[in-house]
Every structure is written in structure tokens, then in C-alpha cells.
Amino acid sequence: MPRIPELFRSPIRTVRTGAKMLLAGLLLTILTSGVVLAAGTNGNGNQNPPKGITLQLAPTSRSVTQGTSASYNVMVQPTGGFAGNVSLSISGLPAGATAAFSPAVLAPGPGSASADLNVSTTSATPLGTYSLSLKGTSGTVQSAVVVVSLTVTAGQHQPFTISGGPAGLLTPGSAVSIDLQLANPGNSSLNVTGLTVSVTGVTRTAQAVANNRPCNPSDYVITQFSGSYPISAPPGNSSLSTSGIPAARWPQIRMLDTSLNQDGCKGATIQLSYSGTGQGN
């Protein structure tokens, strides 16, 4: 019979050793135990970012005139499964400016939460551009500081006005107090000093004119305000009386008692002028 050649079969050796393979750009380590770990993990297979919070503000800059306010929107975003109450704070405000968050404490939970930031200035806030630093805090967790800018420019200030008149009828030899009225059209209080009152004119009655009876500003004497300064004039209308100043300290006008002005000043109308200085807070 013809010999049938025997096929040669070499044994296959299985080797279980550690090896490194590069698959689809991912470096894997094959261990003899069969457990596969992605390189760059923390050893537990957890790739989640640490718990924390981030802030976003819009807009990043505002410009206001003295005595007005600027608003910003603050967005708080949790990361890494953070959950808790976040308190907002701000630093870098210019002199005389104040800030308020609404609400001041946020609870973003699994999603984001937002608050409104309102920065108010006064008429005395220095001009310039300021960097305001904001951050969120929850226990030992703090966000990175976010900086926005606030530019304060000069506003158009309306002057306050002073008015008033005698509280009663003027007669020869008598003095009548004047409760000065202060009108402040601004949105912040003024410190008023240097109040003065003067008689600038007299209008006689037709009968006094017909009879040539004289009456002049010199027939009246003004006693100026004797209270302490400054006087606070809040926005809107106020007076010496509403400021708690006793009537004995108010300005007074007195009509002289002479033989010439007895008839000439009777029924006359006097014109008063006022002056004073108001400084914004």
C-alpha cells in the first residue's frame, strides 16, 4: 500500500503573561486576573470631576452715572454632583456704593440657579472704573473668583431749592419765624449748610403808593438760622420743622417800628431770596 504522509502538528503553547496593547488610541493594561482598567483613572474607575461650584455673570461690564445703579445676573452651576446652599459675596466696591443679591443664598441642586446683583452708587461715589470680585461659598467649597467691571461717570445733578415765608402777619416791631422748605430732586440725601435769607424787594399797596408812603427792604431785619449744621435733606421735600429743628433756631424776619413805615409797609408784599450749599452723601 502506498504510504500516506503524516501531517505534522506542532503543539500550541498558551502563555499567560502581562502584555500591553494599543486599541483605538486607548491604552489598556491586560492583567492575568482578567480585569481591565483604563489608564489615567483614580484606581477606582471613577472619572467624575470633584464636587464644586462655578459662577457666570452677565454682562461682564456696566457703566452708570453717579447716584444710579447697575444690575448683573449671577448664574451658579454645580459640578461633580454638588448639592448645598451657596452664599454669594462681592468685594472691590467703590466708596459710597452698596451691593445686594436677590436672593443672597442659592440652592442649585442638580441644576443651575441664578440671582440678581444690584450695585447702587451715590452722587458722591468717585468717578472711575472698578473691578468687582464675586465668589460663591458653601462650607469649605468655594468657586473661582469672577471679576466684572463697573464704570462710574458724572451725572447731571439738579440743584436743590429753598423756599419759605413768614409763618404769620408782619406788624411793626414784631418778628416772625420762617420754616424753610428744602426740595431735593436727587435720589440721595444732601448735607445742607450756609443757609441765608434776605429781603430783595417790597411791593406796596396801591393806597401806600398813592399817598407816597415809603416801605423799603431796609425796613426789615433778618435774623439768620442759628441751628447746627449740616442739615440732612433727604430726596424729595423736607423742612426745618420735619428735620426736628426747634422754631427758635429758624430764621426770623422782623419789621422795624418807625414813624415812616407805619402806613407804607401796611399790607405790603415782600420778596425773599434764599441761599445755601448742599453736599451729596
Rank of each mutant, 00 (worst) to 15 (best):
R249D: 15
G236I: 01
P214G: 08
C215N: 06
N237R: 08
T223C: 11
M255L: 15
S238K: 00
D219R: 06
M255E: 07
T205P: 04
A183F: 07
S238T: 09
S239T: 09
P230W: 09
Y229L: 07
S241C: 03
N212C: 11
S177E: 00
L195A: 01
T196E: 13
S188P: 02
P234H: 10
Q207M: 12
N191E: 14
N187W: 00
P172W: 03
S174D: 04
I253H: 03
A248Q: 14
L182W: 00
P235R: 02
N212Y: 13
V199G: 01
R204E: 06
T193V: 13
S218P: 10
G244F: 05
S238L: 01
A233R: 00
Q224W: 13
L182Q: 01
T242F: 11
S241Y: 03
T193S: 15
A175Q: 10
A210L: 15
S239V: 03
W250C: 02
A210P: 05
R249A: 14
S218I: 08
A206C: 09
S188I: 02
P246Q: 14
M255T: 04
R249F: 14
W250R: 01
I245S: 10
Y220P: 01
S218T: 14
S241L: 10
P230Q: 12
L182E: 00
P234R: 07
A175Y: 02
P251Y: 04
S177R: 00
Q224I: 09
I253G: 00
P234T: 07
N191W: 04
V209N: 14
L182A: 06
R204W: 00
P246G: 10
G194Q: 14
A175D: 10
G236Y: 09
T200I: 04
S243D: 06
G194H: 12
P234D: 07
L240I: 09
L180K: 04
N184P: 05
A183G: 08
L182G: 00
P234Q: 11
G244T: 05
T223W: 07
S232Y: 07
Q207A: 15
G173V: 03
Y220M: 09
T205V: 07
S174N: 12
N211Y: 12
A183N: 08
S188N: 14
S188C: 11
N216C: 10
R213K: 14
I231P: 03
G173N: 05
L190A: 02
D179P: 01
G186V: 02
P172Y: 03
I245R: 06
P217D: 10
S188W: 04
S239N: 11
S226L: 10
A175E: 07
N191M: 13
D219F: 05
S218D: 15
S218W: 01
T193E: 11
A206Q: 15
T196K: 14
A210H: 13
S198A: 15
Q207H: 10
G227R: 04
P217C: 13
N211D: 15
N184A: 06
S189H: 06
